[in-house]
Design a protein around this nucleic acid. Structure first.
Lengths: 204, 204
DNA sequence: AAACTATTGCTATTAATATATACATTTTAT
DNA sequence: ATAAAATGTATATATTAATAGCAATAGTTT
């Protein structure tokens, strides 16, 4: 049924989605593959090919209907499927993510935030009280959360990951500059910010 | 001379680099392609192939010398080449990035941070005083900064980008969920956090 | 000293993806 | 009726990924 969509296509589709949101704000009803292609400096046939994986059809001479196309992307990429997550590490990055309003648009609901710093525990971030790490397993179990966003300092990353594994977390979105060692039934997505940056700058 | 290295290889090399840093902390002197491969759940021949783009050689039966390999990656990816940047938007994300110590290891020096919120201007983040946006062009020019890290709210992203273009910024690392329209002589790197996340979760 | 083993550094192969070009077809506008 | 713009699809080429295999080498064991 669901044909596997490659990472690059997913990434481009989310960029198209950003463009579509922007067009909606501007009350523009139609958009062509050429317009999208020019904004992203890619080929327009690439855009049409990407859109092909959605169940959407455009119209000759007019292009795509902005609202329809946006919804198609949301359906295909599962924006409406709620994904419940908790944040581990209430530093600046954890706080930034907790406050970042856009995540809910994409189906990511952040339900709790944890730290082991007594000065932070009890403070409120975006309506959530920072909880003690010791409560993590109970909260995750009660609210059926299996995604953790890991934003602790690098040197605590592995020990925290071990702790998350024990708390039956199954997916770790890893923002630390550390490669984690976890059992096979746990998946890690390394955000690898610097890797991304170097792709951009190593040739500068 | 410098053969072009593909994005995926660069990304993996930075992950190897994280592993190597970790091995150094643990005082381990040698590492094999198999060890790296197992940590990242990839093939060991892939690791050797990636390492091949560096000017590094391992030893049969022993593997690679951790310190040497780490330095090779740093040289090839230009960690020592200083890249000067400024942050635009002193919200949580901007603050997180400003405080994130690891960037300097990769050659990224953040020299200034800007906002247009009067309540924020003048405050100190990681030794830098938050400056008024109006000072941006002058500071960029004086300190020869041509990279901007854009962390303003999405709805101000395009207008801020226009402002940066006027201030002769040449590279924009865009953390906002907005596709920017800029002249051809300005490069944008979309961090696209949600795109990355959806690659990870759309099949969950 | 000889046999064994682990590991690199290649090479080869296959599959997957990206990128670009092209064009028939459709729809709207003139 | 004609022209123009856009999709949808096909095709071709290039690049990249992923894997497998093996000779050569350097240690280890017997």
């Amino acid at each position: 049924m669901d044909k596997k969509i490659s990472d690059k296509v997913i990434n481009r589709l989310t960029l198209y989605h950003c463009i579509l949101s922007d067009f909606i704000d501007k009350n523009i009803e139609h958009i062509s593959s050429k317009q999208i292609a020019e904004l992203l400096h890619i080929d327009d046939s690439q855009v049409r090919k990407d859109i092909n994986v959605l169940n959407n059809s455009g119209k000759s001479r007019i292009g795509y209907i902005v609202k329809e196309l946006k919804i198609s992307i949301e359906k295909t990429l599962g924006f409406k499927k709620t994904k419940k997550a908790l944040i581990v590490g209430a530093g600046n990055l954890g706080t930034a993510i907790a406050n970042y309003g856009n995540f809910t648009d994409y189906g990511l609901k952040i339900l709790a935030i944890f730290d082991n710093d007594k000065n932070k525990i009890g403070k409120i971030i975006n309506g959530m009280e920072i909880q003690n790490m010791y409560e993590l397993a109970a909260t995750a179990s009660k609210d059926e959360i299996d995604i953790a966003i890991l934003t602790v300092p690098g040197k605590f990353a592995q020990s925290t990951a071990d702790f998350l594994v024990n708390a039956h977390i199954k997916y770790i979105w890893n923002f630390t500059p550390t490669v984690l060692s976890v059992p096979d039934n746990v998946q890690v997505w390394n955000e690898n910010l610097m890797g991304n940056f170097l792709q951009f700058t190593y040739s500068i």
